[in-house]
């Protein structure tokens, strides 16, 4: 029974990683860049919720406001910081992304100070008891949101015109251009979706533990990036699988006293093992080099 609870908790925290990892993987697949500022969008979303709560009071409004704010922020970052570098060396883009990450963290610290904020209204306390199992409401909410996002995103990518265009752009940007696809528009949409997902992930983290600082998104960002690579960066199902796997490993490791202090190490070991066995990630495809 304990193991089942651990598994459910693992799937739940894995769900949050998966939602963040989707942002990394979609941007990587379509814009061919690692957006290391992605984790910090989560943090900005957290502060956006905090500010809205102070002004309006209702958590639902706060989450919606944060989603909209993050979406706009994601689009602006892409236009201002990354778009001018299209065609530049990947290293230049990577360093810019790290720069944007520092910029967001520093701005948050300047505006909100360095002591953590406690948006308690976002917290969802309480738990449901099924037999001997006790599962937090926040865990159930996270699982539900994760499933909804995964299904919605899969359907969107497979059946909508824009979704198909996203697959096309991720596979071959020039060929997509030749089909009349405005690749810049597709990249903008990708950043918008990724940033909204980051805001949602921010809420899911804060509803469990309402403590908000300017580094809120750092560790989850790195873990989600790890999850995206484990699953195969660029692959949407890969990000889902990688995120869930990482969450489950994390919770199992926490539940074993001897391993608990080394949980982060255990998680990153999974990355090393996966990369040794299958360098492209679990669901990743090997890129064929052009001759």
């Amino acid at each position: 029974m304990d193991f089942l609870v651990t598994l459910i908790n693992g799937l739940s925290s894995g769900g949050t990683y998966a939602i963040i990892a989707l942002g990394y993987t979609m941007v990587y697949g379509i814009a061919k860049m690692l957006n290391f500022a992605h984790g910090d969008i989560i943090m900005v979303g957290g502060y956006a919720m905090y500010v809205t709560l102070m002004a309006m009071g209702h958590p639902v409004i706060a989450v919606c406001a944060a989603a909209v704010f993050c979406m706009i922020l994601g689009i602006v970052i892409e236009k201002v910081a990354y778009k001018p570098l299209r065609g530049a060396s990947p290293l230049a883009v990577l360093i810019t992304a790290i720069g944007v990450s520092f910029l967001l963290q520093s701005l948050a610290q300047i505006i909100f100070g360095s002591s953590p904020k406690m948006p308690l209204k976002l917290q969802i306390s309480g738990a449901v008891t099924i037999g001997a199992m006790r599962i937090d409401y926040s865990t159930i909410l996270t699982l539900a949101v994760t499933v909804i996002i995964m299904v919605a995103l899969s359907v969107f990518v497979k059946y909508s015109k824009t979704g198909r265009a996203m697959v096309a752009v991720s596979e071959d940007r020039d060929a997509a251009l030749l089909m009349g696809i405005n690749t810049n528009r597709i990249i903008t949409i990708t950043f918008a979706i990724g940033s909204v997902l980051a805001a949602v992930a921010g809420y899911l983290m804060l509803c469990k533990a309402p403590s908000l600082s300017n580094t809120l998104g750092s560790m989850p960002g790195i873990k989600a990036f790890t999850a995206a690579v484990i699953g195969g960066i660029g692959s949407i199902p890969g990000a889902m699988v990688g995120g869930l796997l990482l969450g489950v490993v994390e919770c199992i490791s926490y539940s074993i006293p001897a391993l608990a202090p080394f949980t982060d190490a255990v998680e990153f070991s999974i990355l090393i093992i996966v990369l040794l066995v299958k360098p492209s990630g679990i669901l990743g495809k090997m890129r064929r080099e052009k001759v």
């Binding site: 198909r164 265009a165 096309a168 030749l178 089909m179 696809i181």
Partner: peptide, 26 residues
């Protein structure tokens, strides 16, 4: 004015039908 590039450059991860639909994107 449409261009069929060298090496065909079809979208491998889309179905044949979806590839054709991409042709009709505009």
């Amino acid at each position: 004015l449409v261009h069929v590039p060298e090496g065909r450059r079809i979208f491998q991860n889309l179905s044949v039908y979806d590839n054709l639909l991409m042709g009709a994107y505009s």
